[in-house]
């Protein structure tokens, strides 16, 4: 464990908690893409299959449980909570996220580190996580204005993956044989997807104006 990875995990945890907090307190999911949340629940479900088989550390198991419970809770809130569901704008959240699942799965079948079920599911979750934010970014483009909590949510998600890239660089130089090209490239693609959002997020923060994303 290094500081970049710990900071990355904490940032990731913060992003999920910010979202849960928003939905739970103001009982609204306005501006939040259900599709992105469903993709994230699928990412965690397919990545943490080894939750009960491979014990790595208490921290690892605890964090996996938190991510699983929180991501599925968010999906439940938006789909089934009698008040929250009313604020879900399904006419705007129209990204065909199923079109992301299949290519990621096929790619995982072809490009992976080991052709085993667990490894293929793990690789699938990596590819899916890289593109899971797309429905949310499309929704932000559509609804143009975004409220602070949604902006913070996306910002924290992007920041967590950027910190992980620093973690991978650190581990590459400090641990012999630590090479995971698939993880690194997938993580880089994911961070680049956030790059343009970051640009506009910082612009709005610097000029102290409401975040406007160009159409």
């Amino acid at each position: 464990m290094n500081i970049f990875r710990l900071a990355g995990d904490m940032t990731h945890l913060a992003s999920v908690l910010v979202l849960l907090l928003k939905i739970h307190t103001i009982k609204s999911c306005a501006g939040i893409s259900l599709k992105t949340q469903e993709l994230y629940a699928l990412v965690f479900a397919t990545r943490y299959l080894d939750l009960f088989t491979d014990y790595i550390s208490l921290y690892n198991t605890l964090m996996k449980l938190i991510f699983l419970v929180s991501s599925f809770s968010i999906v439940w809130y938006i789909r089934h909570h009698k008040i929250v569901r009313r604020s879900y704008d399904k006419d705007q959240d129209t990204f065909r996220h199923y079109f992301l699942v299949l290519p990621c799965f096929l790619l995982a079948l072809v490009i992976n580190e080991k052709f085993t079920v667990k490894e293929i599911m793990w690789t699938f979750s990596l590819y899916l996580e890289a593109v899971a934010i797309l429905p949310q970014l499309v929704l932000l483009q559509r609804t143009r204005n975004i409220d602070n909590l949604t902006g913070q949510y996306v910002f924290l998600l992007g920041a967590y993956r950027s910190l992980y890239i620093l973690n991978w660089i650190y581990r590459y130089f400090t641990e012999p044989h630590y090479v995971h090209w698939i993880t690194w490239i997938s993580g880089l693609v994911q961070t680049l997807l956030y790059a343009d959002f970051f640009y506009y997020y910082f612009q709005s923060w610097k000029n102290n104006v409401k975040l406007e994303l160009p159409a």
Binding site: R5, D9, H12, D50, D54, I56, N60, M63, K64, F67, E113, W122, Y164, N167, H180, T183
Partner: peptide, 10 residues
Amino acid sequence: EEQPQGHDEL
């Protein structure tokens, strides 16, 4: 004894 699973990250 199975070598530790390569993926120790979240």
